[in-house]
């Protein structure tokens, strides 16, 4: 039962509800002090966050990622950041600023070049390959392109995520309709992806990401393909999921969304963390 040790929540059990008060989550912010960082890109990250708090669920300590295709331009440079359980965080920045790299480091689609990255207390950089699937069972993932299987219905797409980690038919029959109801698709259970709108497809993919009740949900541009109205619906859904205690990290370009929800905002620029702000907006100078 290795996967249960990873995060103190048994799969299939109801999610741990962490009350969302205005001041509850207090992540550790480690000020970036390396001289290299200071030389190269000016000011330290602007932050209004206090530097004390509980044990973070995600902790970046001096994490860098250099792709072999661009050895002189790190995709991420010396990132220090802590994310507490139950937080809702927007990750903003221009294209190429390192948002996707940041996201993909967390579920170990890629491995950081330097530093220490703890997810739920486990070092994902030094993690053994065979442990990775168990890490991912605790991380829900939502992408811009939905990644749904076109030959499966909404139900089957969500059920697939449970099937392939070996859940019983009984669990699938009870959990899948429940999670589809949660995302507001109770009447489209047997529709195929091409019969659903973009927003509905994204809801299916969110349903798939949370059906196993992961404590952490990471979203890479979840509203990138959607119109503002639909995007708002998706963000409200994510907010609702967050209120059940799930930690949510959203990488986004959606200025309107970030500005209206006023969550913690982390900004990346050219691979550097330049801002970490509670109840922030999309652009500091906007």
């Amino acid at each position: 039962m290795d996967e249960n040790e990873l995060i103190q929540q048994a799969p299939g059990a109801p999610p741990i509800v962490i009350p969302m008060t205005e001041s509850a989550p207090q992540p550790v912010i480690i000020q970036q002090e390396t001289p290299k960082r200071a030389e190269k890109s000016g000011p330290l990250p602007i932050t209004n966050r206090p530097t004390q708090g509980g044990i973070p669920v995600i902790l970046f300590e001096g994490v860098s990622k250099v792709y072999s295709a661009q050895p002189n331009k790190p995709a991420l440079s010396n990132i220090n950041l802590g994310i507490n359980a139950g937080e809702f965080i927007f990750l903003v920045g221009h294209s190429g600023s390192g948002k996707s790299t940041f996201i993909r480091l967390i579920n170990r689609e890629i491995v950081a070049s330097r530093g220490r990255l703890l997810v739920a207390g486990e070092d994902v950089i030094r993690m053994r390959n065979w442990r990775v699937p168990y890490l991912r069972r605790n991380i829900g993932c939502v992408y811009q392109d939905f990644k749904l299987l076109p030959n499966k219905t909404a139900f089957d797409n969500v059920a697939f995520a449970l099937q392939v980690i070996g859940k019983s038919k009984h669990i699938i029959r009870t959990q899948v309709p429940e999670v589809l109801r949660l995302v507001g698709l109770e009447d489209k259970i047997h529709s195929y992806p091409d019969q659903l709108s973009g927003g509905e497809q994204q809801r299916v993919s969110i349903a798939r990401a949370i059906v196993n009740r992961p404590p952490l949900l990471i979203c890479d541009e979840p509203t990138g393909n959607l119109d503002p109205q639909t995007s708002l619906g998706i963000m409200r859904l994510l907010d609702r999921i967050n209120r059940t205690g799930t930690t949510i990290l959203v990488a986004t370009h959606d200025r309107e969304m970030v500005d209206s929800l006023r969550k913690r905002v982390v900004e990346l620029e050219n691979g550097y963390l330049v801002r970490d702000q509670d109840k922030g907006v999309y652009g500091i100078d906007a």
């Binding site: 699937p133 991380i139 993932c141 299987l149 697939f160 995520a161 392939v164």
Partner: peptide, 12 residues
Amino acid sequence: AIMKLVGASNGF
């Protein structure tokens, strides 16, 4: 790709 994403084990 989806199987990997949702944490299906390599053997599976």
